[in-house]
Simulated scan of single mutants.
Amino acid sequence: MEEGGLNKRNSSNLGKKEDLFHVLHKVPYGDTPYVKAKHAQLVDKDPEAAIILFWKAINEGDKVDSALKDMAVVMKQLGRAEQAVEAIKSFRSLCSKQSQESLDNVLIDLYRKCGRVDEQIELLKRKLRLIYQGEAFNGKPTKTARSHGKKFKVSIKQESSRLLGNLGWAYMQKTNYMMAEVVYKKAQMIHPDTNKACNLGLCLIKQARYEDAQSILEDVLHGKIPGSDDIKARKRAEELLTELKSKLTQSEPVKILGLDDDFVNGLDQMLNSWGPIRSRRLPIFEEITPFRDQLAC
């Protein structure tokens, strides 16, 4: 075989190996600070070096959107969630408009990690406000999300229910179970699932409303709620029912917090305030009943 042909063949094999390397490790091509940061993060498993390189990428304007988000994730993994929050707040103005939604999602997770519940609640409300005003998903009915390397479609209804579920959980951390109950019920009206049903059951248990809680948890076990075939959900429902039965033998006083000031005039009034231009109101919010009716349920 001629030398030129041999070199060409070796070069082709080398190229294939490099392609396989990048696919397996999910590392982008190139020699930029961002590429080096991803290599340090995913191949070398050196998070500290990755953070330094992500900083360099941000300062040099190299894939700032991805660099900031990836750096925050690595910081969180190292237990530096507070630093990650400050980094996003300081540098998100350098990022594109399209990246702001994903940065908000990272921030919500960081707030939860840091125990900054009030900030988490305010950000969740703001994201719901954007959905209500028709400004989320760049005006589209669905968006493409990614989880564990897989892409999937998320609808406005699913996203609204997810955010309301997170909001409900945040209120539970503040032990405001009345407000958590209201939010979880709204979430279930839009896009029901067993996880939020179990959380709603827990809210009712905390308020000593055992019959209502039992009814919801039994719906999970009897397959009346989407996702009832999930083993973890069924196990949690069973555990909550066991807890409920133990509560029936106790007579401890139950402390019930009132509604947050933001919600004191009713959740429906709050939703109306989100949409100054009523024609832009999304159909999913038309499905939500007035707040006083909800409390009367």
Rank of each mutant, 00 (worst) to 15 (best):
M1Y: 12
N7I: 14
R9I: 07
S11H: 12
L14N: 11
E18F: 02
D19Y: 05
H25K: 06
K26P: 00
P28D: 08
Y29N: 06
D31V: 05
T32G: 08
P33H: 00
P33E: 00
Y34S: 04
K38G: 01
A40G: 01
Q41K: 12
L42A: 07
K45L: 14
P47N: 08
A50V: 04
I51C: 11
I52W: 03
L53A: 01
K56G: 08
D65P: 03
D65A: 07
L68G: 04
K69F: 04
D70R: 04
M71I: 02
A72R: 02
V74W: 07
A81F: 00
K89A: 00
K89R: 13
S93Q: 10
L94E: 12
C95T: 15
Q98V: 07
S99D: 11
S99H: 11
E101C: 03
E101Q: 07
L103A: 06
D104A: 03
N105R: 12
L107W: 00
D109L: 08
C114M: 08
K125A: 05
R126H: 14
R126M: 13
K127Y: 01
K127T: 03
K127D: 12
L130P: 00
I131P: 05
G134E: 05
P141L: 09
T144Q: 13
A145E: 14
R146C: 04
S155Y: 03
I156R: 06
I156P: 00
S160P: 00
L163A: 06
N166F: 07
W169Y: 14
A170P: 05
A170F: 03
M172P: 01
M179Q: 15
V182M: 13
P192F: 05
T194R: 02
K196L: 09
K196G: 01
A197R: 07
C198E: 06
C198D: 12
N199E: 11
L200Y: 08
C203L: 13
A208Q: 13
D212M: 10
D219G: 01
V220C: 08
L221F: 12
G223D: 10
I225A: 02
I225M: 03
P226M: 04
S228C: 11
D229W: 10
D229V: 01
D229T: 12
K232V: 14
R234A: 13
K235C: 06
A237Y: 08
E238K: 11
L240W: 08
L241G: 07
T242N: 11
E243L: 12
K247G: 02
L248Y: 01
Q250Y: 05
V254Q: 10
I256D: 09
D261E: 15
D261A: 09
D262C: 04
G266T: 08
Q269F: 05
N272V: 04
S273A: 06
W274P: 08
S279H: 11
R280K: 15
R281V: 07
R281Y: 10
E286G: 06
E287G: 03
I288Y: 02
P290G: 03
R292D: 13
D293W: 04
C297H: 09
